[in-house]
C-alpha cells in the first residue's frame, strides 16, 4: 500500500518528520499516536499526497509520490478514504450529497444505490440529519459524516485523523467497530488518535500495530499499551 524510505518532511527549513521508513501492508490495521503537534496529521497528508516528502521517498500504491501528476494524485485519492481532522465539506450541499461526493466527482454517482447510501448514513447515526447542511451539524456529527464519505468509494486504504475526537464513548466504539469490519473485508486502516482507551478496545477486536511519533521519528510502540 504505502512504503516510506527515509522520508522527511518540513514546513520550513527545519524538518518536522525525518527518517521515516515503514511499510503499511495491505489489510493491516495501524494506530498513529503522539503528542499534539508531533506531526500525525502531517504524516497522513504525506500518505494521500496532500504533501510531498522533502526528502527520501514515499510510494503510494506503487507510484512514487513526487512523480505523480495532478490526475495521478486524483486517481490515487479515489482509492483512499480520508477522514480529515477538520472535516472538509461543501457547505452549500446537504449531508447526503456531501457523503456521496466522491462518487459524484468520479461520475460514478449513478452507480450508488440509494438504499446503500441510506444504510451507510444510518450506520453512522445521521439518518435524521441527512438533509442538513454541514455548518448546521455538531462536531461529532461532522466526524461521522466524514467517515461515511471516506468509505463510500469502497477504498483500499482508510486514513482517519482523530475520527472519534468529538463523539461519546458509545459512538466511538460504534465507529471503531465499523472500521474493524472494513479491515476484516481486507481494507488497510490507519487511525491517528490520542485516545489510548480506543486503542486498547481495538486490540481486543483486531491485530493492530501502534506507531508513535516522537521527536520527528516514527517508532513502534506495541508492547507498552
Amino acid at each position: 500500500m504505502i512504503e516510506m524510505q527515509d522520508a522527511a518532511y518540513g514546513y520550513g527549513a527545519e524538518p518536522l518528520l525525518s527518517g521515516l521508513s515503514l511499510h503499511l501492508a495491505p489489510g493491516s490495521f495501524h494506530f498513529l499516536t503522539g503528542p499534539s503537534g508531533a506531526g500525525k496529521t502531517t504524516f497522513l497528508k504525506l500518505c494521500y499526497a496532500e504533501l510531498l516528502p522533502t526528502g527520501g521517498q514515499i510510494s503510494i500504491f506503487g507510484h512514487t509520490a513526487t512523480g505523480l501528476s495532478r490526475d495521478g494524485i486524483a486517481d490515487i485519492r479515489q482509492r483512499i478514504g480520508v477522514v480529515h481532522q477538520d472535516c472538509q465539506f461543501l457547505d452549500h450541499l446537504p449531508l447526503t450529497e456531501n457523503i456521496a461526493l466522491p462518487l459524484t466527482v468520479t461520475s460514478k454517482g449513478g452507480l450508488v444505490q440509494e438504499s446503500n447510501l441510506n444504510e451507510l448514513i444510518g450506520w453512522v447515526g445521521l439518518s435524521a440529519r441527512a438533509n442538513a447542511k454541514p455548518p448546521e451539524l455538531s462536531g461529532g456529527e461532522r466526524q461521522r459524516a466524514a467517515l461515511a464519505r471516506a468509505i463510500i468509494m469502497d477504498p483500499d486504504l482508510i486514513l482517519a485523523d482523530e475520527p472519534t475526537g468529538n463523539v461519546d464513548w458509545d459512538m466511538s466504539l460504534r465507529l471503531l467497530n465499523l472500521l474493524v469490519e472494513l479491515n476484516k473485508l481486507g481494507k488497510t486502516v490507519v487511525i491517528a488518535t490520542h485516545d489510548l482507551a480506543l486503542i486498547r478496545a481495538a486490540k481486543q477486536r483486531v491485530q493492530a500495530r501502534v506507531l508513535r511519533i516522537q521527536g520527528g521519528q516514527i517508532i513502534s510502540a506495541g508492547a507498552d499499551l
Binding site: R70, D71, A74, R77, L90, P102, V105, S107, R149, M153
Partner: peptide, 16 residues
C-alpha cells in the same frame, strides 16, 4: 478555492 480544495481531496480531477 475552498470548494476546489474539498473536490480535490475526494479525488476530483482538474478537468472535472
Amino acid at each position: 478555492a475552498q470548494v476546489i480544495r474539498v473536490l480535490r481531496l475526494v479525488g476530483a480531477r482538474d478537468s472535472y
